[in-house]
Amino acid sequence: MKVADGFAGIGGSSEGAKMAGAEIVWTGNHWQEAVAIHARNHPQAMHTCQDMHQVNPALIPQHDIFLASPCCQGHSPARGKANGNPQHDSSRATAWSILSIAEYHKEDVIIVENVPAFTKWALYPAWRQALHALGYAISPYIIDAADHGVPQNRERLYLVMTRSKHPIELTLPHRPHVGADSFIDFSHGSWSKIDRPGRSAATLSRIAAGRRRFGDRFLAPYYGTGSGQTGRDIARPIGTITTRDRWAVIDGDRMRMLTKHECAAAMGFRPDYILPEQHTLAVHMIGNAVCPVVMCDLINSIKEAA
């Protein structure tokens, strides 16, 4: 089975496809730094650094499955005040590039990953109808990575498209949840005293609330709702890994942010997966990635249903 990966980023979808026994023949991404990291982890694939709207489908090798994770920022509720600005109109439009590739290659299967709010996009009905016109039936799945044994609650939409009369019905595995304590290493990282001068009152309040609920060791996010005010038990999956440092590890009177390797582990990447040297860059790429285990399970389920 041959796979092409558009919007490949750091390589979460490619890694998942490889885990499922597929050969990655081509990947595309507009960001040179992401392409370089992907190439180090998947050197056998052809790599194209180009805006997906400008990719010539004829230059993509033949493949059975096309994976695509178009920009999600314009659909995510987390975009906040940027809602509706031209930047996000442009990011939403990246989904249209999938159509030119599908029209040319007529792949057996296309898997599109995005935030669940993707289906609320005003042009989603037209986009979906265009894929129907190309002969694709669409099965939507909203999947929490934690249900696949990934130590993170990360809910994403996966549109499984097949060139068939009826949508495919998949039987996906459901694994026990794994806690954040499976990847947090209390002997590593840059720790600092919680009660140091300059620590914000809001941070101290969140930590105090977490101590009351969970004791000396827990997670405290620096921003966001939900766990943002109460902390999070390390025995349960961590909340969503984002594109910037969010989760602090609390251990008694000290604290630190997650390391880049812990963020990668929370996504389900293998321990030896190559990451950017710079922490901020690595976290940004990891937060944009697809959980490899989820993509692996999807592809294996598609093979079983075929």
Rank of each mutant, 00 (worst) to 15 (best):
R128K: 13
I142M: 11
Q129S: 12
R163T: 07
S164F: 13
W96D: 08
I168V: 04
L131D: 03
Y136A: 02
I138T: 01
T162S: 10
Q152P: 09
P173Y: 11
R154I: 00
A117F: 10
N153R: 12
A146N: 03
E103F: 05
Y141H: 11
H177D: 09
E113T: 05
T94H: 11
P173G: 10
K165T: 15
L134E: 00
V109P: 06
A133P: 12
E155L: 14
N153H: 13
A146G: 03
Q152L: 08
I98F: 11
D108S: 14
P151Q: 06
I143T: 05
R154L: 01
K120N: 15
A122T: 13
A95D: 00
N114Y: 01
D144M: 11
N114W: 01
P173F: 11
G135I: 05
K106A: 14
T94R: 08
P167M: 02
R154V: 00
A146P: 03
Y158D: 03
A130C: 12
A145S: 11
Y124N: 07
A146D: 02
W121K: 03
K120D: 15
I98T: 07
W127E: 01
R163C: 05
S139E: 10
G149A: 00
T171P: 09
P173T: 13
A102T: 02
A137M: 06
F118E: 07
I110D: 00
L123D: 15
Y141W: 11
H174Q: 15
I101L: 14
S164H: 13
S97E: 05
P173K: 12
N114I: 02
T94P: 10
D147F: 07
I138P: 02
Q129K: 13
H177I: 08
R163H: 08
M161L: 10
L159H: 00
E169D: 15
E107I: 08
R175L: 15
I111C: 03
S100T: 08
L172Y: 10
H148I: 09
V115H: 07
M161A: 04
Y158P: 04
T94S: 13
L170S: 07
A95R: 00
P151M: 00
Y158I: 08
H166Q: 14
T94C: 12
P116N: 09
A117T: 10
I110R: 01
N153T: 12
I98W: 08
V115W: 05
D108W: 13
T171R: 11
G149R: 00
P173D: 11
Q129E: 14
Q152K: 11
H166W: 14
Y158M: 09
S97F: 04
P140I: 02
L159D: 00
A146S: 10
F118M: 09
D108T: 14
A122S: 12
H174I: 14
K165N: 14
L131Y: 06
